[in-house]
């Protein structure tokens, strides 16, 4: 690192430019790809994929997330260490969600508010009908 690398007048001449400006074409291409994927996500909601629906939606969202991370967040041009840290966080998110979900499957009913604690059910006209309460 030369001490003069950053003097105001010879930026372009020195060899220590660490800025990697992304080309406008790349930015626009990524933007249109993201918009296109959004349209697909909205469109697929009108079809019934049954059990695959959540998987489809999450897959498209993840493709979008990868596009944003790779290009808008400059992860491709960035130091690999930063990418490892960031993507590593998703490993822990996965562990967290999987273990908590697995645990809740075994104890799920304790998450539910008990029926006698329910507020008067305004959206449930039959209850008032049968038990004769006002």
């Amino acid at each position: 690192m030369s001490a003069h690398a950053h003097s105001e007048d010879d930026h372009s001449a020195d060899g220590h430019d660490f800025a990697h400006p992304m080309s406008v074409q790349t930015l626009l291409a990524v933007f249109f790809a993201l918009t296109f994927l959004t349209v697909i996500t909205v469109a697929q909601a009108s079809f019934d994929f049954g059990a695959f629906e959540v998987a489809t939606v999450m897959f498209i969202a993840t493709v979008k997330a990868v596009l944003v991370m790779a290009f808008f967040m400059h992860m491709l041009a960035d130091k690999p260490f930063n990418a490892i840290i960031f993507i590593g966080s998703f490993v822990f998110v996965g562990l967290f969600v999987m273990f908590t979900l697995g645990d809740s499957m075994m104890t799920s009913h304790s998450f539910e508010p008990r029926v006698e604690e329910l507020a008067p059910a305004v959206a449930e006209p039959t209850i008032t009908t049968v038990d004769g309460a006002p």
Binding site: F86, S89, F90, V97, S108, E112
Partner: peptide, 23 residues
């Protein structure tokens, strides 16, 4: 590193979402 904390922060809410949606 800050973004990692943000991801973990939001993952708590996504986890709550997953539990109640599964339920």
């Amino acid at each position: 590193l800050f973004l990692v904390t943000e991801v973990l922060f939001f993952s708590g809410m996504f986890c709550a979402y997953a539990i109640f949606r599964a339920l």
